[in-house]
Design a protein around this nucleic acid. Structure first.
Lengths: 215, 215
DNA sequence: TCCGATTTTGACCAAACAGTCAAGTTTCCG
DNA sequence: CGGAAACTTGACTGTTTGGTCAAAATCGGA
């Protein structure tokens, strides 16, 4: 007999309503706390408090702290590859890059915790996503770098190293999520206003696409 | 009677040779460990091991963990302002930006731990450098943004928001220190080779100054 | 409504951890 | 040398923290 509910109200993964809801609550709480303090620095009590439940209850769903971290991390990695993968070799190079940069900027605005969690994992030496980085990500980047190189060879893009272009895009777009606190401190309320992220996206697009030197 | 040594071999701050050496050793060890795990995630035993001394000995020099963190952080902040402050309003805009970007890239290559420590503090919500960010840094950035805006108004730079330009430069240059592990995973040995950082600096300079759209 | 399965939690435990202390060892200088 | 100050550390303490457990509360289908 399975320990998993046999109720008719199961989700696609065979979880009861309560399980689905609580797992989601915990994952959200974990994302926030892990994003701030990393795996080591995060405390179960803190995550439990964020999730609004007792610590033993939390451990009923995820037996160990590391399990929450792994689950949260996996969710985040999912959304990481997609935008880059959408870079279309047959599209207009400048337009494709504009789309990619815009998509990453939107992600930074909508899911800053995801970006921060990822950043923290990298800062810690990426012990939990080493395989992902060296296989999936590396392979995808290699493929897209080939696309960009082709664009350069065809003269449809300025001569630039594809890898460093990708790194530059990652750096600038994620900066707005990861260094959010710094940006707010430097800009004041201005950074919180509606439309700020669109303005940031415009500036980043302008710099990367056209550069800052006068024409 | 002071507890501080009266020996003739004192450094400018009144510390004995042994004190100077050990404090430096601890600060270096602390920088490495705090850069990886943040204030919360770092363990005194780990720092002590890195420094090659016993934990009580370490605490003889810095009574609390937080004291090491504060000392390390202050050192790092020192080197943070300087390069930006060197941006000369009377110099050639493109040349000044080139100098600034190069200086930041060099810092990323030479002191990646410093950059990572700073990044971790920001990710954690910057509780220990809030004042620094909102006063010193903000003031300096305001001043330099004025310089850049003037350059733009004079037509010596493409029309771009000065703040976002500064953020873009911070993002790209620090990315090479903070995300070092990711870059290595994606590029393989290539990223470790001599000259890699010069190549990266060239690419970043080219993108920010000239952009990637074809001319 | 009833009953077994699921969910929740207060009380607890063991390990990890920051920090103390007193007793040793080394260093420095007269 | 000799002795006082500076330095070092093994053994320890109190607290925090991840995780356990058994009992209570709730849920959901028949």
């Amino acid at each position: 007999m399975s320990t998993i509910s046999d109720q008719s109200s199961n989700d696609p993964e065979g979880r009861s309503r309560i399980q689905s809801r609580n797992r989601e609550t915990i994952l959200t709480a974990g994302r926030e706390v892990f994003a701030r303090h990393g795996l080591r620095g995060a405390r179960l009590d803190e995550i439990a408090a964020h999730a609004g439940m007792s610590k033993p209850n939390l451990l009923y769903y995820f037996p160990r702290k590391q399990d929450i971290y792994a689950a949260v991390l996996e969710e985040v990695l999912m959304g990481w590859l997609m935008p880059l993968d959408a870079l279309d070799p047959d599209g207009d190079p400048v337009e494709e890059l504009r789309r990619y940069i815009s998509a990453k900027m939107a992600l930074s605005a909508e899911q800053p915790e995801a970006s921060r969690l990822f950043a923290g994992e990298i800062l810690a030496g990426a012990p939990h996503i080493e395989r992902f980085l060296k296989t999936d990500l590396r392979q995808l980047v290699e493929k897209k770098a080939g696309t960009i190189r082709r664009w350069v060879d065809e003269g449809r893009l300025a001569p630039i190293d594809p890898y460093h272009l990708i790194f530059t895009i990652w750096a600038t777009t994620q900066h707005y999520a990861d260094f959010d606190v710094q940006i707010h401190a430097v800009l004041g309320k201005q950074a919180g206003r509606a439309g700020f992220h669109d303005q940031a996206a415009q500036a980043v697009l302008s710099i990367i696409l056209k550069g800052v030197a006068p024409r």
